[in-house]
């Protein structure tokens, strides 16, 4: 036989080549599959960040030390503490803990205290029209232009406090949101059984 003349390949080499070939083909297939999956099952954005962001109150106040709620959501997803959001308060921490299966921890006092909802109010007589508050507002809830008096769109204001420090004449106040017949909430009935002796 002609071939036998050339067969000088030792049998172990054949085995090794076979193994290498099999592994290469297999890993190639796996790679192709993963690549396909990466393209066709691509998830838009990070869903957990979106879910965390949905729980955060969107005040965009930056009390957590991040420039807005989305960055804080991102930070939480990367392992930051969930108790740095005063506007979300206890209820917010509870639902975050629920979502991320973490323990409920008290609010970090460094970040601030949970308070009743507030809304910014510009004392219009004192406003000098410097536009500094407009630039500070994270949700564009202040209207006005240079040298003109500014005012707050109450329904859009999140009460984040960020417009107060930049004001050079201190004409911005943060009063509590007034309860009226529309936003009034029913009281929880008193539980009689927990009356102590």
């Amino acid at each position: 036989m002609e071939i036998e003349l050339f067969v000088a390949i030792p049998p172990w080499l054949v085995e090794v080549t076979q193994a290498i070939a099999v592994i290469t083909i297999f890993s190639g297939l796996c790679g192709a599959l993963l690549g396909y999956a990466a393209v066709y099952f691509k998830v838009e954005g990070d869903p957990i960040v979106e879910q965390i962001n949905a729980i955060l109150p969107q005040t965009q106040c930056g009390q957590c030390g991040h420039p807005g709620c989305k960055p804080y959501a991102q930070a939480i997803a990367n392992g930051e503490a969930i108790n740095r959001c005063p506007p979300g308060g206890e209820a917010g921490i509870k639902s975050l803990a629920n979502l991320l299966e973490l323990d409920v921890i008290p609010l970090n006092e460094e970040c601030g205290e949970e308070s009743l909802p507030r809304v910014a109010f510009i004392i219009e007589e004192e406003c000098i029209g410097c536009t500094k508050c407009i630039q500070a507002c994270p949700v564009d809830a202040i209207v006005g232009t240079a040298k003109q008096m500014h005012t707050v769109i109450v329904s859009e204001c999140t009460g984040c406090d960020l417009c107060v420090p930049p004001c050079p004449v201190d004409c911005i106040e943060m009063p509590f949101v007034e309860t009226n017949l529309i936003n009034w909430r029913q009281q929880k009935p008193i539980e009689q059984s927990i009356v102590l002796n």
């Binding site: 962001n53 109150p57 969107q58 564009d140 329904s155 859009e156 999140t158």
Partner: peptide, 10 residues
């Protein structure tokens, strides 16, 4: 609803 609004505006 308001937080959704705030988020959009932000």
């Amino acid at each position: 609803k308001t937080s959704e609004l705030a988020k959009q505006r932000f």
